[in-house]
Design a protein around this nucleic acid. Structure first.
Lengths: 264, 264
DNA sequence: CACAGCGTTACCGATGAACGGGAATCAGAA
DNA sequence: TTCTGATTCCCGTTCATCGGTAACGCTGTG
């Protein structure tokens, strides 16, 4: 693909370029961009020029570049995330005003939990989630909820892999995990203390979409030493039902509702 | 640019493709995408394949395509918008809980107001703004606030163009507009009834960034027949100050603070 | 002042990926 | 079955892409 000696298509290179920006590197010089993306300098300049022309990148007053407004606009006009975010936000604010720690909304994407919204104290010590950040499925209560309501075939596939043990409390044994997943489906929530960092504890519940499938997980993170985490569950449950209804959910038609990843 | 007979670069074509999606067309068949984007069918299939490979587009169960998760993720990790949005949201919720109609946050982008956040009733009759939607500067109170605090050179340039008259109340005369802009700077807010649609009235105040420049406008839209719109101003003002402070604003150092579009 | 280091712009020849028309295949509707 | 539309496959042409090299401009330093 493409005339490149490295054999990469333009599109992949553009992804490399945009991907070189992150929270800690929101702007940089073109040369720095070339280094971070690993592309030849000349090539980087040529591509950046084009991207600037389209507004996908923008030039700062100090000549550095950053991700452009137009790119944000393109995505925000059509992405699947947007509807979910908009439906969820008011309810998340409600939860946040009661729980006070940190409230997140996550979906399942390529075997990880992708957090699409988070509110709470900016640098909460007990919460390592970020918007657009990813965490492993078996290391988060959100992930376990999403997994619990996934199609059995997907669960089998996932559990067949070897899983990293983050803390003493992390579950990695397939059979043990299966038992937990069953428990989550039965109770309707997951409460997992210290499975990724010892100090924090997550409680998560499922959010349903139009097709009665699970499309996201709503979760709060609290310090592990909190008296009784389960007292948080009712708040989360009602909020999750509110979000589900805003997404077009018609109430549980009874019966186990599996699979996620569908439309909503 | 690219081997195309139409003489367009790949990047531009990708923008055309992604831009073909909007709120009303979140998914479509590849052939439909080719029609909407105006690209040759074969070319569209080839590009879509590549984009699918990168995760920038995704395939629906019914074989249609939509904007992909990965694209959202790339943008949300680095865009300038994100910080602004996160800082503003809590305060916007506060305003919304009091004013009840519809609260928006807009920035100035290529001679238009780009709304980067909006909360309120989903299909409010009196408000035509959408997230990632655009409206003309002189047709919105947000736009006039942003213009009022822009560098004089930019104001001159803007006012030298001929402006569309949307309603009887729309201001299009340069001198008249200048007088209004001065009034906005003096009072610290804009209240413009029916300048884009007759039924609604907007009230907007500036949001300041770290460099003491105006980076956004916070606004509420209310029905025009409301008794006294100016009673909304204090609520907006305090919220805007809160947002500004969250952005690193250090309080007004006195004196007129002009120009926007800087970092924040 | 000369020098070094870095970011940026300009030039250019070879090459092979991109291009897109056309035809075949497939799926669903009439 | 036939028709309509979406999708995939094929293939020869061609020109945009690629990236090395070199020059330019700026800043700080010995």
């Amino acid at each position: 693909m493409a005339n490149s000696s490295s054999g990469e298509s333009i599109i992949r290179r553009v992804v490399r370029l945009v991907g070189a920006f992150d929270d800690a590197h929101r702007t940089m010089s073109v040369a720095a961009l070339a280094r971070r993306s690993g592309l030849p300098v000349t090539t980087t300049y040529r591509l950046v020029d084009e991207l600037l022309g389209e507004g996908l990148l923008e030039r700062e007053p100090n000549a550095e570049v950053r991700v452009g407004t137009r790119l944000w606009e393109l995505v925000s006009r059509s992405s699947r995330m947007v509807g979910l975010r908009e439906a969820a936000l008011p309810f998340m604010e409600d939860v946040q005003s009661v729980v006070q720690h940190s409230t997140t909304l996550g979906i399942l994407d390529s075997d990880e939990v992708l957090y699409i919204e988070r509110i709470g104290s900016r640098d909460s010590m007990v919460d390592i989630t970020k918007v657009a950040g990813r965490l492993p499925v078996h290391g988060t209560s959100s992930g376990l909820v999403l997994l619990a309501y996934s199609p059995p075939a997907y669960q089998d596939l996932f559990l067949s892999r070897s899983l990293e043990k983050f803390t003493d409390a992390t579950l990695t044994e397939p059979t043990e995990l299966r038992r937990h997943l069953a428990g989550i489906r039965q109770r309707g929530f997951a409460s997992m203390p210290g499975i990724i960092v010892p100090e924090s504890s997550g409680i998560a519940v499922p959010v349903f979409g139009r097709a009665n499938t699970v499309v996201a997980a709503l979760s709060v993170v609290v310090p592990r030493n909190e008296e009784n985490p389960a007292t948080r569950v009712p708040v989360l449950m009602t909020a999750a039902r509110g979000i589900s209804r805003a997404l077009g959910w018609r109430g549980e038609l009874k019966g186990a509702l599996r699979q996620s990843n569908g439309n909503f």
